[in-house]
Design a protein around this nucleic acid. Structure first.
Ligand SMILES: NC(=O)c1ccc[n+]([C@@H]2O[C@H](COP(=O)([O-])OP(=O)(O)OC[C@H]3O[C@@H](n4cnc5c(N)ncnc54)[C@H](O)[C@@H]3O)[C@@H](O)[C@H]2O)c1
Ligand SMILES: NC(=O)c1ccc[n+]([C@@H]2O[C@H](COP(=O)([O-])OP(=O)(O)OC[C@H]3O[C@@H](n4cnc5c(N)ncnc54)[C@H](O)[C@@H]3O)[C@@H](O)[C@H]2O)c1
Lengths: 220, 220
DNA sequence: ATCTGGTTGTGAAAGAGTTCACAAGCCCGA
DNA sequence: TCGGGCTTGTGAACTCTTTCACAACCAGAT
């Protein structure tokens, strides 16, 4: 069992959501075929993804919805509660605080930081906004596992440096910029601008091919 | 020149941001080496990405920052103004409306839709929220190019169906679910939950390897 | 017991994407 | 004009990911 690819982990997350859904529908078993159809991948892909972690299915029957769900939850660490620090209590940060899905998945925002004196001390959904300078101390005290960065692009690198110094190893970044981190620190980016630009590129491409009479692009 | 990969387009978006930054710094030329370092890829990757679209560099010197920036803007369709419909004026939707970066990149939110009678008719940053039933008409009238979906997961598929029927071909979805679209319609997902789960998986993995005394995972 | 229809798990093949390696080319100074 | 230092552009090699294909297996009917 080699290093698991990012793509596989991403797909497991998706399968997980389907399984939760199927369970609420009362479905007992699910085949790789059905799971694949729901996610626009091949059945072989589903089976390969799962086989990275063991054998969970029954030949001829498929996978037990409940059992597979639990297995994936385990793999992804969704049974655990992770303590999250949010940096940046702006419009995006505020939306994230009020986003209940995070908590449901075990990601608890337990501290919010900002550097704006007008915001520090104020409350957001029961959480008091702390000054960014208090971050290292609070991260230690609360034993925080991961950080979400929702500050303006210009401040993002300096915030990441602070987080790294505070000992955090996992960071989710919303600023549309590639940030530097030392080895051992994982940073993942949520980048809506890039997604939009990919759509924009395809709009241009589809217009061009329309003019050329070429066949149009398929989805995803 | 084959089909350009998604990965390449994504990287172009990133390079673009670096180029904008370098231009404001007054830098005239940039090498694939420098660009690569800023984005944690190899110089060869940068050159390959660009070579998909033509030859823009000068051997021995590198690329003209300004010229390359313009070229990429052209490729990605960033010169144009795209009209965007936003569906869902909740907490995320509201954050998106107030996000100025979108407009700067040429993505203008020109209409906002919701199905909540309490919200329809209200204003958000100068935009009146319209009832979702008016969407097809307004999309036609305003000649809207793409749609952003920021409604609860349970409503996302039905909203996408409406969008597809209204003739939209490009959709950016924030709901954490794989949505069905007919061929010819491209949908891209921004999925923070999945990103968090990938981090969570790595946290678990790193804890396990810590216990085993194995080397820790590298960044990215 | 055996057969049938269906599904998993997995090596091997195929396909994508990335990196290597080097000729071709530019600039500058001698 | 020539040589040295540096960088691009790109086929070829390599690596990673996905798909194929099929033996192994399960359940229920006959
Ligand atoms: N608003 C959106 O819908 C949206 C969408 C996509 C991406 N983003 C990205 O998310 C990030 C935040 O966006 P936003 O719209 O919430 O911005 P915002 O300006 O509303 O909020 C940013 C917050 O960060 C705080 N801040 C600034 N520097 C800081 C520092 N050094 N330390 C701690 N806090 C600091 C500010 O005081 C402010 O409260 C940006 O990088 C933006 O590009 C936002
Ligand atoms: N809030 C966040 O920070 C956040 C983060 C990540 C992902 N998301 C996702 O983004 C989506 C929106 O989240 P939110 O927090 O803004 O939710 P929200 O409940 O605040 O807002 C959703 C809005 O959509 C409207 N709506 C519901 N059904 C509709 C329909 N059929 N047609 C038109 N409008 C409809 C509601 O009236 C509401 O205004 C969800 O799918 C959520 O999972 C949100």
């Amino acid at each position: 069992m080699n290093r698991i690819s990012d793509a596989t982990i991403t797909r497991l997350s998706r399968y997980y959501r389907s399984l939760v859904h199927l369970e609420t529908q009362g479905q007992e078993m699910v085949s790789s075929k059905e799971l694949a159809k729901r996610h626009k991948v091949t059945p072989a892909q589903v089976r390969k993804d799962l086989s990275c972690f063991g054998q969970f299915g029954t030949r001829g029957l498929g996978y037990s919805v409940c059992q597979l769900k639990e297995t994936i939850a385990h793999i992804l660490g969704l049974h655990r509660i992770w303590k999250v620090a949010l940096v940046g209590a702006g419009s995006l940060g505020s939306a994230l605080i009020s986003y209940k899905e995070f908590k449901r998945q075990g990601f608890h925002i337990v501290a919010v930081f900002d550097n704006d004196p007008h915001k520090v001390g104020k409350k957001r959904r029961g959480l008091t906004i702390s000054d960014i300078t208090k971050l290292p101390k609070i991260v230690k005290e609360l034993d925080i596992n991961l950080a979400v960065v929702a500050v303006p692009t210009t401040a993002a690198q300096s915030v990441v440096d602070i987080l790294v110094k505070a000992g955090l190893k996992m960071i989710l970044n919303f600023a549309p910029e590639t940030l530097k981190t030392p080895p051992g620190v994982t940073i993942r980016n949520v980048n809506m601008a890039i997604e939009l630009e990919a759509l924009s590129y395809r709009l241009v491409a589809s217009e061009m091919s329309r003019l050329d009479g070429k066949p149009k692009l398929s989805s995803i």
